[in-house]
Design a protein around this nucleic acid. Sequence first.
DNA 1: TTGAAAGCGCTAACAA
DNA 2: TTGTTAGCGCTTTCAA
Lengths: 337, 337
Amino acid sequence: MAAPGPGEGRRPTLADVAARAGVSTALVSIVVREAPGASAATRERVLRAAREIGYRPDARARLLRAHRSRLLGVVFEVQGTFHGDLLGGLYEAAEAAGYELALSAVTPSRDEARAVGSLLSDRCEALVLLGPRSPAAQLAELAARLPVVVVARAVRARGVDVVRTADDEGLHLAVDHLVGLGHRRIAHVDGGRAPGAAERRRGYREAMARHGLSAEVRTVAGGPAEDDGAAAARSLLEGAPPTAVTVFNDRCATGVLDVLRRAGRSVPGDVSVTGYDDSRLARLAHVDLTTVAQDAARMASLALSRALARLERADEPAGEEVVPPRLVVRGTTAPPR
Amino acid sequence: MAAPGPGEGRRPTLADVAARAGVSTALVSIVVREAPGASAATRERVLRAAREIGYRPDARARLLRAHRSRLLGVVFEVQGTFHGDLLGGLYEAAEAAGYELALSAVTPSRDEARAVGSLLSDRCEALVLLGPRSPAAQLAELAARLPVVVVARAVRARGVDVVRTADDEGLHLAVDHLVGLGHRRIAHVDGGRAPGAAERRRGYREAMARHGLSAEVRTVAGGPAEDDGAAAARSLLEGAPPTAVTVFNDRCATGVLDVLRRAGRSVPGDVSVTGYDDSRLARLAHVDLTTVAQDAARMASLALSRALARLERADEPAGEEVVPPRLVVRGTTAPPR
DNA sequence: TTGAAAGCGCTAACAA
DNA sequence: TTGTTAGCGCTTTCAA
């Protein structure tokens, strides 16, 4: 009558449904897959039997039988908010394309290799890696086995597709905005060796040069976290502080903001500050940070398209998709005094 | 010679390895599983063949063959930082117990039912739900099919295990701390209908009563987000403001902080504020929020123990594990002026 | 419209 | 120590 509770007996299979409905398993298969080839009466009888015993198809058995798994593996980090946004977009795009997602998280105790390994054992057809840290050589090796799309990291590895934001342009936007407000003494707190840091640093220098401000270029060593920003801000305060600072990312920028304010500098009165990522942090009312946003939805959909293209055409070359960033102006930037 | 690239040919199987090594598939199976029953020489020959053609066992076929999947399904939300911490702990505990985790995310476009459904199709043996929003009746229905452990939400549903923080105690800690500093006019900005809100509200009232401060009880409608906190703080400022406010969670508390500071109130000079969660937010140097921490590692390990206990003994009753919270004193609380 | 039977990749008896 | 064989739950010819 009711579905069997846990412990009592195995899960119902196609054969169980077939027995109950008095038909063959092949017919049940046809019905539950909504494939053509069964009479309306049979269809109804089978569906009722299935419902009654709580039947649910076994995804693994299906995949085993099918030559293809239609499974896309995704490796992500449990920390980044940005990864969360990307995941949402990937689920949507995968569903639209008739694929399933298999998730594998990188945690403090579970490294990228482990995360990738479990996905390979799951017979994923392609892999989407969000901000991976593995060296390019390893990524290339992986890409020799199956299509690999790297999101949010600029790597050049043979056979690896890349979807990333134009981080250099992101800093062009920030600098252009500040120059437009009248700033000239604009510094940059960089991200050290973090992914994207080099591109943003370069973008900063390029934009300054374009405005004839190469003499004003001042890059301060920073990093991805609040502490890095705090330390950078302190060193910034030692000399003649700039009137504006572009910072590697939002987290680092909040560290900068904190030190500036505690030192009695008003933001944006005395100093303007920009971040990067448009994270939840930047949107907080009391942080209200002018920042550069990455388009997560678009990146997710591009990542999926790349994976599918590689899957469908074996000779499709790997490529790089560069998504333009967008400036989000909030309350930490204003004209200099 | 090398592993086949994408597109050219199917993935190597046991049979391929067997053919290359000149042995039977059964023997290859024994070797790759590191089971006893193969000579050292054969073992080596098989492993070499496997390596050469890039063989990797098919997890799905294994699971199909085995009567058990040793798969634990986890439903989580891509937003909460706290879920990230829990995931990390779950992976560790699962590995220690010899289980695999199957992740399924809830996103804006993918609801809880979908997330659970995909896990059921994957033949997970038990489900761990992080802060689920489904009504108790639905959870009970699910629990009739397989062991279900709910983490970080207090539900009473037949057959459902619960692992949660003692949220009432969390507010006892906060109130005790404030009273110890000398506060008496202590308000509470609540979480509305959010999970945990009722318990925290009750904890606040109980603690106030215990200190003989029932006459000072003042509960203000809040919610889980910054905006909710901001609105609550504005209403708090209308009358004679309290000298301290306990807030539902950290996000809401930052909204409270923002409005208070913009209204010219110093924190903790004029008003002390406490949050809840010890999220990254609370730890930011410039937020530096006194807050109540939940023990994610312990909750994860308890959740897994419960799931395994239910799996191993069919008659194991469902239970509730309540983990004590911990007060983290930072810079937003001080004695009243 | 329906059923019989083979086989996906793997493991576990059982035999040799 | 090694091989043969059956079968996990499902889909898919092919025949009836």
